[in-house]
Design a protein around this nucleic acid. Structure first.
Lengths: 113, 113
DNA sequence: CAACAATACTCTGCTCGCCGATATATATCG
DNA sequence: CGATATATATCGGCGAGCAGAGTATTGTTG
């Protein structure tokens, strides 16, 4: 499959932990990225629709909490595999660049354990 | 800086090794990605222009080999640092997703040493 | 030697994911 | 009662990349 963008990647990663509702993913993505990424609502709901079409994510029920509707989503098995492929791609690319930067004497910021 | 796309990342990684001319980067990117990515010429030259504006890449002379012009490019120090930042980002994201997938019992394809 | 592939750079139209902003509705807090 | 937070939805626009065609030269091959 084609390259995955960071917001999409973070949504899938967030859902890998378990069932979550749309809005909650904004906080999740922020946490996952160490506050670097703030999902825009437009991006979020468009991505969820797209990922459902691709069957990487599935609806997982609705609940009304405090009078507010929550739509839940979960990662499908296909979604988990797609995410695993993406992780492999990221790691491979990072490793290649790491080698060359090292050969050039450039240090890479620690991923912080 | 904003998210870097794969073609851009591969161009910078290729140039981290040393001075190269435009067309040669197509083969380099293919090799770096294990044949997965074939840079489109339009993408390549547009990216080189953009990266020069951002001063991540600089022109490194022209040569005529066998009657054909070659424009050479090199990575700037700023480009090397930007690439290092990107590597850190990729590794961090990969690690986060790896944990969650592991917790879900999903295996990740080995990066192949 | 004419046709074709390969090298090398340029340009244009288009798509797709994301951004920025706005809208709607309800609950809570001061 | 007004402001803020939660929660979902929609719309215009942008930028990187894709697809494809174009120009020019050299090397190959039938």
């Amino acid at each position: 499959m084609a390259e995955m963008r960071e917001p999409t990647f973070l949504i899938l990663t967030a859902l890998a932990e378990g069932r979550k509702h749309g809005y909650a993913l904004i906080a999740e993505a922020s946490a996952l990225s160490g506050g670097r990424v703030t999902l825009k609502v437009g991006t979020l709901y468009a991505a969820l629709e797209r990922l459902q079409e691709q069957e990487l994510v599935a609806a997982a029920g609705e609940e009304v909490i405090d009078g507010r509707l929550r739509r839940y989503y979960k990662l499908t098995d296909a979604g988990a595999h797609e995410l695993a492929d993406e992780v492999a791609r990221l790691e491979r690319n990072a490793q290649q660049a790491r080698r060359r930067l090292h050969g050039r004497g450039v240090a890479i910021a620690g991923a912080g354990a």
